[in-house]
């Protein structure tokens, strides 16, 4: 109770609060002082390369790892030391972790079985969940008899049957092929809206994070580099890492642009390319190194002094020759100043 009273009063109670959370594995700082607050009903993504701490952060919230220091608060309750089975949180695991010795129905109903719900009721509710994930009628199959996409849905149904307030998804679409991935992204988002459950979604795929999330935390070296809406993240990256990891970016020294110090990010699609060598503000001239035709767009690699820049424009015949002089230009507002990473 004393613990509860110490919680600061906020208008909306956060689903998840991490305060100065760190998790060390020996000398490795997997998570290094993370602060964050996730709101109820939010689709929140943790994005980062492998080893950035995003999965450990998720596992800390699930209770599979213990924080070295810091506090984890779930729905206003300190959960830092609670075991997974005492948390109102369920997880969709990366390898799905379906129980191979049970059929699909018993897998889905597992959470009800361990709580002692009678068999007829748990079978009925398992069928409901299977219907929700479009697997009605497959209850008697073994997980081994299902395709990757179907197993993914079983894992989802199993995690949702208890109606958790918070669902953790650890790269759930990682093992699926591209087409299925895109379908599942749409379905997951729709399911999240329909159920109103908070989703925390771990991924290394920036496109996935941008298209599905309300907010995204970009992880690097166990810390959050930037936490923003997808649009802000893409339009206003604050560090070089974020600029390069979310989409692609040209990162330029201010000196090269005739601006005062620091570094600037410039998205390739903000750059126009013309033949000839011109100088002036918001333009640079260089040598065209390579042209990659990508269908709807064409990517140009241009050498400007020491730097190598990338420009992406809608495909049209421009008659540019590899090795010729070209000029790159952009609107002055397209340059985004970057701060140094902490």
């Amino acid at each position: 109770m004393v613990q509860m009273l110490k919680e600061p009063k906020t208008s909306v109670q956060a689903a998840v609060v991490l305060r100065e959370v760190s998790c060390y594995f020996g000398p490795v700082k997997a998570v290094d002082g993370v602060d964050l607050e996730i709101l109820p009903g939010e689709f929140f993504s943790m994005l980062g390369p492998s080893g950035s701490g995003k999965t450990t952060c998720l596992r800390l919230i699930g209770g599979f790892e213990q924080p070295t220091s810091g506090q984890i608060v779930l729905f206003g309750q300190d959960a830092s030391r609670l075991p997974p089975y005492a948390r109102d949180v369920n997880t969709v695991f990366q390898d799905y972790a379906l129980f191979p010795h049970m059929n699909v129905r018993d897998n889905v109903a597992y959470a009800l079985m361990v709580r002692g719900v009678p068999r007829p009721e748990r079978h009925r509710r398992a069928e409901e969940m299977l219907e929700l994930v479009k697997l009605a009628g497959l209850g008697d199959r073994r997980p081994g008899q299902l395709s990757g996409g179907q197993r993914q849905r079983v894992a989802l149904a199993r995690a949702l049957i208890n109606r958790p307030r918070l669902l953790l998804l650890d790269e759930p679409l990682g093992a699926l092929d591209l087409k299925l991935r895109e379908e599942m992204q749409i379905e997951l988002k729709a399911l999240q809206r329909q159920l109103g459950i908070t989703f925390i979604y771990v991924t290394h795929d920036q496109g996935e994070a941008l298209s599905m999330s309300d907010r995204v935390a970009v992880f690097n070296h166990g810390r959050i580099e930037q936490l923003d809406t997808p649009k802000q993240l893409y339009e206003y990256p604050q560090t070089e890492f974020v600029a390069r990891f979310v989409g692609s970016a040209n990162v330029l020294e201010g000196r090269l642009l005739g601006l005062e110090g620091g570094r600037y990010a410039l998205r390739p699609e903000r750059i126009a390319i013309q033949p000839g060598s011109q100088t002036g503000p918001n333009r640079l001239s260089g040598t065209l190194l390579d042209i990659h035709y990508l269908g709807a767009q064409t990517r140009y690699e241009v050498q400007v002094g020491e730097e190598r820049l990338t420009a992406v424009t809608p495909s049209e015949e421009q008659g540019l020759q590899i090795g010729s002089a070209v000029t790159l230009s952009w609107e002055s507002g397209s340059l985004r100043p970057l701060r140094e990473a902490v």
Partner: peptide, 11 residues
């Protein structure tokens, strides 16, 4: 992960 999944589901 099976053991963690079981624990996650309340066992």
């Amino acid at each position: 992960s099976l053991i963690q999944a079981s624990s996650d589901l309340g066992a």
